[in-house]
């Protein structure tokens, strides 16, 4: 099949732990993040937000890249993570004033950012486990639509239910990270987890089942179990991403994690290449960079005597076009679905 998002020929590549495959992408992320954040305060802010997106793209990668099951619904867990970590850290006084319909125990609780991150991940993983028990019985098109429905349900509930969140409003005064290093460290940790679970025995088994329908059927129930496991891990990491976003922006609302967020992160993964950590990293950096360049043009740029101004909307246009073009001409993404490899170390 020529248009295969998740190719089979790549499979044998990531079966064995190789330091370069793990350390290469980490090195690139750390270098790019520090370099970009040293440019200016606004670049530092952008970098922090991009690291939260990277974690979300990794959440998608660990599920889609290994199981081959498409999900439009992981943003639901990011939403939950953002809300959870926000609610646990916003000062009690603020909650009493702004979120007056909130459930009493939630109003009273308050903790530091890091404990809240752990709880957010736990809640995200737990909800992913429960929903995954049902959703991971589906595959292909049905899985795509059902996970999309999950996103709709999460959005509808969290957008309206003031007992557990700000409802249609924004939850303000979420404590922010103090240093960029915190986001970088979390992203690096996530890359470790995603890479290691990908090359683990279970990860290899799950990828193998995608290739051979017969073997997949023979394994039957255990595939479902493996998918639920990866859906759970993905949900936890997505919740982490949502929480990072909340502590990056200092505020959080349901619509931060709706269709736009889903589209951007999915586009990053597909453009970079869905079947590797390296693809997730490249896609995130590439899409962000393109967006930034176009943003500058949208503001107006003078080259010589001519002034260019791109109309608003061009950024989304270019990224959407890139996604479609990649799907048609390079369905394995710009990395070709390969893990990171140093040129002079390459073996085939």
């Amino acid at each position: 099949m020529s248009n295969d998002l998740l190719p089979s020929s790549q499979l044998p590549g990531v079966t064995r732990f190789q330091w370069q495959q793990l350390l290469g992408p980490i090195f690139v992320v750390v270098i790019v993040a520090y370099a970009a954040s040293s440019v200016s305060a606004s670049f530092a802010f952008l970098t922090e937000g991009t690291l939260a997106l990277l974690v979300m793209v990794l959440a998608l990668q660990v599920l889609i890249g290994n199981s081959g099951v498409l999900s439009f619904g992981q943003a639901a867990f990011a939403m939950v993570g953002g809300f959870a970590s926000g609610l646990l850290t916003v000062p009690v006084r603020i909650k009493e004033n702004v979120l007056d319909e909130l459930w009493e125990p939630l109003k009273m609780v308050n903790m530091g950012i890091y404990p809240s991150l752990v709880i957010a991940v736990a809640i995200g993983a737990f909800l992913a486990f429960i929903t995954g028990l049902f959703l991971m019985r589906l595959s292909g098109l049905a899985a795509g639509i059902a996970t999309f429905a999950l996103l709709m349900v999460a959005d509808n509930v969290l957008f309206n239910w003031r007992l557990i969140g700000p409802g249609p409003q924004v939850m303000p005064q979420v404590p922010k990270f103090d240093f960029i290093d915190e986001s970088i460290a979390i992203a690096v940790l996530t890359m470790f987890v995603v890479y290691l679970i990908g090359i683990s025995r279970r990860g290899r088994l799950l990828r193998a089942t995608r290739e051979d329908a017969l073997a997949a059927r023979a394994l039957g129930a255990s595939i479902w179990r493996l998918r639920v496991l990866f859906f759970t891990v993905s949900g936890g990491i997505a919740a982490l991403s949502g929480a990072m976003y909340a502590h990056h922006a200092g505020a959080v609302s349901a619509r931060d994690f709706y269709l736009g967020f889903t589209f951007t992160t999915l586009a990053m993964l597909v453009i970079g290449g869905a079947s590797s950590v390296w693809g997730a990293v490249v896609g995130t950096i590439l899409v962000t960079a393109i967006g930034q360049v176009l943003l500058v043009f949208e503001g107006g740029v003078t080259l010589g005597s001519i002034e260019f101004t791109l109309p608003n909307g061009v950024r989304g246009l270019v990224i959407a076009a890139a996604l479609v073009v990649i799907l048609i001409w390079r369905p394995r993404g710009v990395t070709g679905g390969k893990e990171f490899r140093l040129p002079f170390l390459s073996r085939t």
Partner: peptide, 16 residues
């Protein structure tokens, strides 16, 4: 392409 790939592509066309 598989139906799930078509689904992503139509999502891309929609945003485009």
């Amino acid at each position: 392409a598989e139906p799930s790939v078509l689904l992503i592509a139509s999502f891309g066309v929609s945003v485009f």
